[in-house]
């Protein structure tokens, strides 16, 4: 009899609710401005700034700041590492939840 497989780990950087929402939104886009991410996620400006900083520190998101029409514009882009981490996160999540279903059926 083989030992039971350990559950797949969920990336703690992405697992936080706000960061998960930010990464999910950025995964749908090539790049998105600060205001766009706020509109899609419903986060507050402070929340978005704080969580984006953590994602940037983890190397999952790139930030570009510019001045457009005398207004500051911040754009975010998911890095290749971020995209890979998110796809692993989703795969692991699905594996976890399908295990949950299996257990529930039993």
């Amino acid at each position: 009899m083989t030992a039971p497989e350990s559950p797949p780990p969920l990336d703690p950087v992405i697992h936080e609710a706000s960061r998960l929402a930010i990464v999910s939104v950025l995964n749908e886009c090539g790049s998105a401005s600060f205001s766009f991410v706020i509109g899609a996620t419903g986060l507050t400006r402070g929340n978005l700034s704080a969580h984006a900083s953590k994602l940037i520190a983890a190397g999952y998101v790139e930030e570009e700041k510019r001045i457009v029409d005398r207004k500051p514009l911040t754009e975010y882009r998911l890095t290749d590492a971020g995209r890979t981490a998110f796809s692993h996160y989703r795969a692991n999540w699905l594996r976890l939840t399908s295990g949950e279903n299996g257990k529930a059926e039993k």
Binding site: C29, G30, S31, A32, S33, F34, S35, F36, G39, V68, D69, K71, L73, E75, R77
Partner: peptide, 15 residues
């Protein structure tokens, strides 16, 4: 896109 602060580009556009 040049005037608004709400910007989004497609992944294909970046590629």
């Amino acid at each position: 896109r040049g005037q608004s602060l709400v910007k989004v580009t497609d992944r294909i556009e970046v590629e």
